[in-house]
Design a protein around this nucleic acid. Structure first.
Length: 216
DNA sequence: CGATAGATATCT
DNA sequence: GATATCTATCGA
């Protein structure tokens, strides 16, 4: 993707990221996945954002920086979340990548997810042999793609972590659903979460209020 | 399904 | 000291 792509309105970027390819290269190998779910965060203006009312700390510093950079943060004592910064430099806007559909490096994703599970003190239950379990959530996909604090502030236009145009032509058209964002306590009225309708890898489908279909 | 424990960096 | 853009498990 180009710099211009990310400079635009955050919700627009979130929508347009659906169907694009998240690519990750490490010494272990390469993993790829199609983005199927994303949320927009409007920094200073957004009660749900880490940068609400201009809060600027070492942790959320990346949000304030230039577009196309990664904002990776650690939360709940064990999880990393991946965002891409949008808007103009100095604006604190970002898109949270919430789910992808695995395309390449699936065995590697399995290995990484399994390793993480075993490191937790849970009772290492049987791993459900379900592809969806690899990447259908923001903290799951960062495990599967080995994304941690180290990837914070790297430019996602051309790095070992980047987003590419979908050239494979797989699923060229789809319906986009817009609904409230997940896991927030304020700013729930706005429909800033977008996902590909009917896609199996979407983290959570909201039946309650339903979403709005926005075909692009 | 719904409820809750889990672990810790970061902020107030 | 409280909180967090969550996940896995357990119980009904």
């Amino acid at each position: 993707m180009t710099k211009e792509f990310y400079i635009r309105d955050t919700a627009q970027v979130a929508r347009d990221l659906l169907g694009k390819i998240l690519v990750r290269k490490t010494a272990e190998g390469i993993t790829k996945g199609m983005i199927v779910e994303a949320e927009a965060y409007y920094g200073e203006l957004d009660p749900a954002s880490h940068a609400y009312k201009g809060r600027r700390t070492p942790r959320n510093e990346a949000m304030w920086g230039p577009p196309s950079y990664a904002y990776v943060y650690f939360t709940y004592g064990m999880y990393y979340m991946l965002n891409v910064v949008t808007g103009k430099d100095g604006e604190a806007r970002a898109v949270l990548i919430r789910a992808v559909e695995p395309l390449e490096g699936i065995e590697l994703m399995r290995k990484r997810r399994k390793k993480k599970l075993e490191s937790l003190k849970f009772g290492v239950k049987n791993s459900k042999d379900d592809l969806r379990e690899l990447t259908n959530g923001p903290a799951k996909l960062t495990q599967a793609f080995d994304i941690t604090r180290k990837e914070n502030k790297i430019d996602m236009i051309n790095s070992d972590l980047k987003i590419e145009e979908n050239r494979g032509g797989l699923q060229s058209s789809f319906t986009i659903v817009a609904c409230p964002r997940i896991g927030i306590k304020q700013g729930t009225e706005k429909k800033l979460r977008f996902y590909i309708d009917e896609n199996l890898f979407v983290s959570k489908v909201i039946f309650k209020k339903g979403g709005v279909n926005v075909t692009s």
